[in-house]
Amino acid sequence: MRYREFWDLVDDVLGSAQGRGLVRELVVGELGQRTAQQALDDGEEPRTVWHALCDALGIPDAARWGSDPHRAAPPRR
């Protein structure tokens, strides 16, 4: 997953304003008590950050990939 794809999913699944706020403000235990933005800034893979953010928000796997039916869901690592 590229950074662009991460941000596209944030906007599509979480809503641009709310989602970007969550990326900046929500502390996620799975990311070492960092926000998603801090984890990205620290070099974590966007795929890892996306899954951790979705887990923290209780977003089911089927809903994580947005409204594009052709978007491939990257597996967890």
Rank of each mutant, 00 (worst) to 15 (best):
Q38M: 09
A17R: 05
D41E: 11
V27W: 13
G29W: 09
G32T: 04
A36I: 14
E5F: 02
L22P: 07
P46S: 09
R20C: 06
E45H: 08
D8Q: 11
G43N: 14
E30D: 14
V28I: 13
A39T: 05
R24F: 14
R2C: 00
D41K: 10
G32S: 12
A39Q: 09
R47F: 02
V28W: 04
W7L: 09
G19N: 09
L40T: 01
Q33W: 07
L14N: 03
G15I: 02
Q38L: 10
E25K: 07
G19Q: 08
E25P: 06
G21R: 08
D12P: 08
F6G: 00
G21F: 13
E45M: 14
E45K: 06
W7T: 03
Q18F: 13
F6H: 02
V27N: 09
Q18A: 06
L14I: 05
L31C: 09
L9Q: 06
D8N: 13
S16N: 01
R4F: 05
L22Q: 12
R20I: 15
R47T: 12
D11Q: 01
V28S: 04
V10R: 00
V28E: 05
F6S: 03
E25A: 14
L26V: 09
G32R: 07
T35H: 05
G43K: 03
R47Y: 12
T35A: 13
T35M: 11
T35K: 08
R34I: 08
L40R: 04
R34Q: 13
G21S: 13
R2T: 07
Q38V: 08
G43R: 02
F6D: 07
D42Q: 09
S16W: 06
Q37E: 11
S16Y: 03
E25L: 14
Q18K: 13
R4Q: 04
G15F: 01
D42I: 07
G32W: 11
E45F: 07
L9T: 00
D12M: 10
G43M: 10
Q38R: 10
G19Y: 15
D12Y: 14
R34A: 15
F6Y: 09
L31M: 10
D12I: 02
A17H: 03
E5P: 01
E25V: 10
P46N: 10
L22M: 15
R24K: 12
V13W: 12
D42W: 11
L9P: 01
Q33A: 09
L26W: 04
V27M: 04
G32V: 13
G21K: 13
R4H: 03
V10N: 01
L14D: 05
W7F: 15
L9S: 03
Q33C: 01
G21N: 12
W7R: 01
L40Y: 12
L26D: 01
L26G: 03
G19F: 08
V10S: 02
R2Y: 03
L9A: 00
R2M: 00
P46G: 15
L22D: 10
L9D: 08
V23F: 13
R4K: 03
R20Q: 14
F6Q: 01
D12N: 14
R24C: 10
Q33Y: 06
G32Y: 11
A39D: 05
E45Q: 10
L31K: 07
L26R: 12
Y3A: 01
R24E: 12
G21C: 10
